[in-house]
Amino acid sequence: MNTIATPPHGQLSMDQCWTLLDTEVVGRVALIVDGHPEIFPVNFVLERRAIVFRSAGGTKLWGAVTAKPAAFEIDGYDVHEQMAWSVVARGEIELIESLAEKQAVDALLLEPWQPGDKDYYVRLSPKALTGRRFKVNKPDLWTTRLSDPRRASFE
């Protein structure tokens, strides 16, 4: 991963947030469905400074087209630098209806991971994009869970 200088207080610039978004393929979209928050994992691509994912009909699609606003989040951990980061996008969601726009997204290789038809293309256009990056505490050799990614520094 490219080393990204950390601004004061760990806040990432908008360009740094876009760079990190462009390094990931799976994120979480947060929507209000039937009056309560729901979070759905989705694989995605970036297309014209927007986040695009595909969906089948159902709860996620209904929430996506009726939820105003929505949020999207990714996070990660750089083992070598022992830095964690998180990016959150907040904005409006719309269905992509144009065949030309769908083909442009397909050209970016947005391929659903889950089996089944994912005929709906959904775009989240961020109105706010924030992120932060921070150094994580060193893990303790004896008490850190085996599944903790920070343990990689021991190996």
Rank of each mutant, 00 (worst) to 15 (best):
E111Y: 06
R151L: 02
T19A: 13
G27T: 09
P149C: 03
G91I: 04
W85G: 05
H80P: 13
V25S: 15
W113G: 12
Q16N: 11
S13H: 00
A64Q: 03
E155G: 08
K68Y: 13
S55Q: 07
L109A: 14
R54L: 04
S153T: 08
K60H: 04
D119N: 12
D75F: 00
G58Q: 07
D106E: 13
S86W: 08
P139F: 00
D34N: 13
R132W: 15
K138L: 14
T23G: 15
Q114V: 10
I39L: 07
V136D: 06
A67I: 10
S55G: 09
G27I: 14
E94M: 12
E155S: 15
E47C: 08
F40D: 05
H80S: 14
Q103M: 12
L129D: 01
L31W: 02
Q114W: 13
Q11L: 14
T144D: 09
F154E: 02
N2S: 10
I74F: 05
D117C: 15
V42E: 04
K127I: 09
Y121R: 05
L129Q: 01
R123G: 01
C17G: 10
L61Q: 01
E81F: 11
E92I: 07
I93W: 02
L146T: 07
T130A: 13
W18E: 07
D22A: 12
G131M: 03
K102I: 03
R49F: 11
D75K: 00
G58P: 04
S98A: 14
D22W: 12
V88N: 06
W113T: 10
T130P: 04
R133D: 09
V42L: 03
G10W: 01
L110K: 06
N137Y: 14
F72P: 01
F72G: 04
A107Q: 12
G35E: 03
F40K: 07
K135L: 12
V88L: 13
M1C: 07
G10T: 01
V45M: 01
M83H: 12
G91K: 01
K102S: 01
D148Y: 07
A104D: 11
A71M: 08
E92Y: 05
V122A: 13
A84D: 03
V33L: 07
G91A: 04
D140E: 06
G131F: 07
C17D: 05
M1D: 10
T19R: 11
A64S: 15
T66W: 11
V79D: 12
